[in-house]
Design a protein around this nucleic acid. Structure first.
Lengths: 208, 208
DNA sequence: TGCGGAACTAACCACGTGGTAGGTTTTCCG
DNA sequence: CGGAAAACCTACCACGTGGTTAGTTCCGCA
């Protein structure tokens, strides 16, 4: 409803998108501090001064990059209709894990930046705090419902399990990035849910 | 047997230790790339040129810092006598989690550096690959034994569970560093082991 | 087509970086 | 105590950083 007609992208918009793409790619390859505006600008085909014409500073660029990615996940996780079907939520999460395995670059971005962002001074600190808070809350809701509707109701603490799942996903990514063949993120997450006693009838793969 | 008599630490040794302390603290606060040798040197009470008299370069400093910490854990995990008592191993791990909760600085170091180290060019890349390989291997052994000796033998895949546990611990740390009150690392890890069906009779706390 | 504003550049700034050279002070041990 | 070696500092280097300024080129629309 906002801007779904891509008729004619103005030059500036195209450049801005290109910059965000480049920034995402380079940030994910080397982190935030280690990448310069000149690197990003060169990768996007302009000068660093030209880049600063579109974005007021490096920090702004970062949070814009993060925000763009999150908006996709948010549509999946908080979109209309998902709220009341928690079992679908789990399928979606597994799907996200699956997608992550195809995009190691973006995964690397989050692992790297979320590590740096532990410092309260970091430009993305608040962003990540809020992000995890939101995800935990959402997952807690879903698990509360799922545990209650299980055949013999499960007695796990939903909030604790929510933190566990998020932690598991993040931690597996670290190992996976270091040595992709060493861990099977998808299988590990599915197994975790099964260990909880949850039915796992999501398709193991097969999306486009 | 090597150097357990601390009688007289030579000046250089004291300085080197002080440098490593400072480096660990600052790296853990801001990561590797974001900290300068001048920062570290100043924190240790000397010039950056003086620091470079003790360590040939920044990268060497990093791997020395990482190695020093790991040597402590290695003694716990691979020390004599632990090999054949896997149930103790779990207690030790829970103990490590507990200790980590008292030393957020060092935890931050690992979270941050392991994130950066996903880049194969990073000076600590090989270090972390090897580290995780070792830990997974060790845990796989322990879980294999534990699952077999459970009253009704457990059917989990030991290698997968090893990766899960390491991932869980790492991922929880990320959340915990961002918002310490948001997750209970200790309880989460204990709960994970319980979910697997393992008896969890380690003391919840009470060490000095 | 013309023109106003957006897009972009070249040059520059002050500063921080890892690392080096050469000299001075301090430590330590015979 | 004496002197060699270790420890350490000042000064410097070449370079990369984020950001600014003033000017030029190009796009898009009336």
């Amino acid at each position: 409803m906002t801007e779904q007609s891509p008729r004619k992208l103005t030059k500036g918009e195209r450049t801005r998108a290109s910059i965000l793409d480049s920034a995402a790619e380079l940030f994910s390859k080397s982190g935030f501090h280690a990448v310069s505006l000149r690197d990003i600008a060169a990768h996007a085909g302009l000068t660093h001064a030209g880049l600063l014409h579109h974005f007021p500073g490096k920090e702004t660029l970062l949070i814009k990059v993060l925000g763009r990615r999150d908006r996709v996940d948010a549509k999946l996780l908080f979109g209309p209709g998902v709220q009341d079907r928690p079992e679908e939520l789990l399928g979606i999460i597994v799907g996200i894990v699956w997608r992550n395995m195809q995009t190691p670059g973006l995964v690397g971005l989050y692992v790297k930046i979320s590590g740096e962002a532990a410092d309260p001074e970091h430009p993305a600190h608040d962003y990540f705090v809020e992000r995890y808070r939101l995800l935990r809350e959402r997952l807690t809701q879903a698990f509360t419902a799922l545990f209650a509707q299980a055949d013999p109701p499960l007695t796990h603490d939903p909030e604790l399990v929510a933190g566990q799942l998020l932690g598991l996903m993040d931690g597996l990514q670290t190992q996976w990035l270091l040595e992709p063949d060493a861990v099977d993120m998808h299988e590990s997450v599915v197994a975790f849910l099964r260990q909880l006693g949850l039915t796992t009838d999501f398709a193991p793969r097969g999306n486009t």
